[in-house]
Simulated scan of single mutants.
Amino acid sequence: MSALTERIDAAKAEGRVALVGYLPVGYPDVPTSLAAMRVLVEAGCDIVEVGPAYSDPLLDGPVIQHAAAVALEGGVKVDDAFTAVRTVAEAGAVPVVMAYGNLMYARGWKRFAADLKAAGGAGAITPDLTPDAAPEWVEAARAADIDTIFLVAPSTTRERMQLTCDASRGFVYATPLMGVTGERASVGDAAERVVGAAREAGAARVCIGVGVSTGVQAAEVAQYADGVIVGTAFVRALGDEGDLERLRAKVEELAAGVRGEA
């Protein structure tokens, strides 16, 4: 058991699924981003994905790309991400990072894992890394007791689904849509299918990121996943203005959704 699995299981024991919130560090500035992450925890997120700003976030949609650009223009540093991880842990949620491989490689696999652990981080989501392509990261993460969270999608073959689920710790990140992240008008049945495929491959806990932006959508996903991941909707709510109350309202809406109160 890890901090992630314990938190997901605790939510299940309460008759709900976990709410996982994402925000980039440094948007619209570092202090406001740290305050925003505390709002995520206060308003109902069980797990918080801390996003170190990256210059070429290929898998992120326009809202998060814009936020990353603002953060980088403001001078955000990788060390700020570890400060954010510490902030989330102190606020009472389980922190993970969602980081691109080149950023981690530049710091050094072992150093990144050690710094994440020292800050109170529980895991790392690596959207552009597969287990077989990053054995050094898997080794460094295991040594530091950091959960390795890999992604699966509808295009994932049966063999690769097995490989990915076997290598994942904490939870498997399932995305039922090909392409970049972002809010969607509807969830669609691909979400449930990809969760089912991950479970068939042995994944005990599957959290799904599907562009959920409303409490109703969160309630729908909560029927078959162990966690609902929300990013773009939270980033949009925060906005360039750093509107913490608008963010709080959106988190509370999604939290009500995973609790079946939407």
Rank of each mutant, 00 (worst) to 15 (best):
D189N: 11
A143G: 04
A219D: 08
T5E: 15
T232F: 06
T232S: 15
R169Q: 15
V228R: 00
T156Y: 00
S2V: 11
L247R: 06
T83P: 01
L163S: 13
D132E: 15
R158W: 01
G260I: 03
A10I: 00
V210P: 01
C165P: 01
C45G: 09
K12D: 13
G239M: 10
A3T: 08
R16W: 07
G227H: 05
G260L: 04
A10M: 04
V212G: 09
I47Q: 07
G257C: 07
F150G: 01
V212I: 14
V17H: 07
Q217T: 04
A81I: 01
L151G: 05
E159G: 05
P57K: 11
V94A: 10
Y224N: 06
K250R: 15
D226Y: 06
L254C: 03
V48D: 08
R7I: 08
L4D: 04
G202V: 01
P135I: 09
L103V: 13
A113Q: 10
V85F: 07
V94K: 03
D60G: 02
S168C: 15
E139S: 14
G179R: 04
V97D: 01
G188E: 09
Y54V: 13
R193P: 00
L4H: 03
G74E: 08
V41C: 11
L40T: 04
D80P: 10
R142F: 00
V76G: 10
A201V: 01
R107I: 14
P135T: 03
V172M: 07
E6K: 13
T181D: 03
R236C: 01
R107Y: 14
G215S: 08
G26Y: 10
V30N: 09
M161V: 05
V210M: 11
A122W: 05
